[in-house]
């Protein structure tokens, strides 16, 4: 939220002074000293305050934090929906911070799969068609039926969203996201509007995708129980990463409880 006092300005090149760790060439994302400042009327809101981060191929990352901690802003920047006020964002050898709208659209189209809290399926398309929608604009997609099988949906493929349960809808949304074989799967509170049992089904689908396709998966949530299934857990607070933890043993979603 809005900072106070001297922290209300972005310090000059803090990362150089802090002696940032050397860049890992195999990382999918490399963020260095990323700031995001929104102007809301006359107030400046610091959503990110100098985040530096690297995400590796095939990782399952859980981003934990309360509302307003900046995790959604970070996810938006990773997904090419938003751009930082300052700092460096690299996807492989693309500099996202400098990309224009057209390049960002292409980036999303070719490399990123999104899963939203409210599914955001197209209501006028059936489950299968929603997946086809993504495969149509992709170069080497999974066959749509195969993508749906990956998330455990084998039937009712010609049902419309309004005819499906929330868990089914979210799994269709995951199938839609992964059908184009993205390198990155970004999930914003994917179980946020689901009950415990269906939420677990969805998490199992995500875990399965991550395991079988080796897709870098970033899940943001304020449900701390989910942290146990990640390779790495990043805690956010007030626009910065305030804690990082690696799980030596990942729990299967079935073993989670909240």
């Amino acid at each position: 939220m809005a900072g106070t006092g001297s922290s209300d300005t972005i310090p000059r090149d803090r990362s150089a002074a802090a002696g940032a760790p050397p860049a890992d060439p195999s990382a999918v994302f490399r963020l260095r000293d990323v700031w995001k400042v929104y102007r809301m009327g006359e107030v400046e809101v610091f959503a990110l305050r100098g985040v530096s981060l690297e995400l590796q191929p095939g990782e399952f990352v859980v981003l934990l934090g309360p509302s307003g901690s900046g995790k959604s802003t970070l996810l938006n920047i990773l997904g090419g929906l938003d751009q930082p006020t300052r700092g460096e964002v690299r996807y492989r050898d693309h500099v996202l911070a400098a990309a224009d709208e057209r390049e960002l659209t292409r980036f999303r189209r070719e490399h990123v799969g999104f899963v939203f809290q409210f599914f955001n399926l197209i209501p006028s398309l059936t489950a299968l068609e929603n997946v086809e929608l993504a495969t149509e604009i992709s170069e080497h997609p999974l066959p749509p039926r195969e993508a749906l099988e990956l998330v455990g949906l084998h039937e009712r493929l010609d049902h419309f969203p309004a005819q499906m349960s929330g868990g089914e809808q979210q799994r269709v949304a995951i199938a839609r996201a992964v059908a184009k074989r993205p390198e990155v799967l970004l999930c914003d509170e994917p179980t946020g509007s689901l009950d415990f049992a269906t939420g677990k089904l969805v998490l199992e689908a995500l875990e399965g995708i991550n395991r079988e396709l080796r897709t870098l998966t970033v899940v943001i949530t304020h449900n701390a129980a989910i942290a146990a299934m990640g390779d790495r857990v990043l805690r956010m607070g007030s626009g910065a990463i305030v804690g990082e933890q690696r799980n030596p043993v990942k729990l299967a979603p079935a073993a989670l409880s909240w």
Partner: peptide
């Protein structure tokens, strides 16, 4: 609008 914005997020271009 919401539906169209979702498509944009999925990587559909403005023209599409």
């Amino acid at each position: 609008g919401r539906e169209l914005a979702s498509l944009r997020v999925l990587g559909f271009t403005r023209a599409e």
